[in-house]
Amino acid sequence: MSEHEVQGRPASELSDEELEQQGKHAHDTRNWAFLHGTAEQFAHHTARMLELEREYLRRYPKRTWQGSGGAPHDVRETAEAWRETVRGVIQQLEALVELPDPPSRNGVGDDPETAFLRRIADAPGGRLHKLEAHQAAREVGLDRAAVAKLYTADPPLIDTELQDRVITQAGRAHLSGGSTA
């Protein structure tokens, strides 16, 4: 795979239409990259989004607050706001670079399915927010298809309640080595 396939064409080589489409797509997918992407995906997304924004600003300075008369009146206040923004970006990047050791799986030698069910069972009320459950599945190495099978098992081992993922009685029985029927 070439660098262009991985990184995309340089923003400076995009047509105006492509630049606008890719910029909009980058902003539309930002939430997904932040919540569900890997550290590598998030870093790539951030770099690409910033590249597209810089190129857009170069081509169309009057379409943004920077060139439309929205420039700051209080330069010191604006400089402090930018300092805080940069500090936040630096903290986020440092968190990506200095990732903690993955949490140990619950139960030595647990397979990913059991480790995932244990994570939910051990959470308060036997429930995790869907985003925490998604992260737990990734941490224990359980892919999406395997997670889906836990919902569709007969009887289901986990269930949904609004934004939460909840272990069922069958899931608890599965963990204790008992019958799930």
Rank of each mutant, 00 (worst) to 15 (best):
F42L: 15
K62C: 07
E55Q: 07
R118G: 00
R127Q: 02
E53V: 11
P124L: 00
G109R: 07
P100Q: 01
T38P: 02
E94N: 03
F116C: 01
P102R: 04
S104F: 00
V75Y: 05
F34H: 11
A95P: 01
S104C: 00
K62I: 12
R48M: 12
A47L: 09
N31P: 04
N31M: 14
E51A: 13
R63P: 02
A95Y: 00
L99G: 01
V89Y: 10
D110P: 03
R105W: 00
M49G: 08
E55Y: 07
R59M: 08
R87H: 09
R127V: 02
D122I: 08
R48T: 11
G107V: 02
R30I: 08
L52F: 11
E98K: 04
F116I: 08
H73R: 14
G67T: 09
G109E: 01
R87C: 01
A95V: 06
R30W: 12
L50C: 15
L93A: 13
R118S: 03
R58T: 13
Q92T: 05
L35E: 05
E80C: 12
H27P: 05
W82D: 10
R30Q: 09
L50G: 13
A121H: 10
N106S: 08
H27R: 14
I90D: 05
G37K: 03
E98L: 06
Y56I: 07
E94F: 07
E40L: 11
P124T: 07
N31V: 14
A79Y: 11
A33C: 12
D111E: 10
P112F: 09
G109L: 03
W82G: 08
T78L: 14
V108Q: 02
R59S: 05
H45L: 02
F42M: 11
L117G: 00
K62S: 11
P72S: 11
G107T: 03
M49E: 11
W65E: 12
F116S: 02
W32A: 07
P102E: 04
G126Y: 04
A115K: 03
Q92K: 06
R59W: 05
L128R: 00
D110H: 04
I90W: 10
R119C: 02
H44E: 09
H45Q: 10
A79W: 08
V97A: 05
L128F: 03
A26Y: 04
A95T: 06
G88Y: 05
H27V: 15
L99V: 04
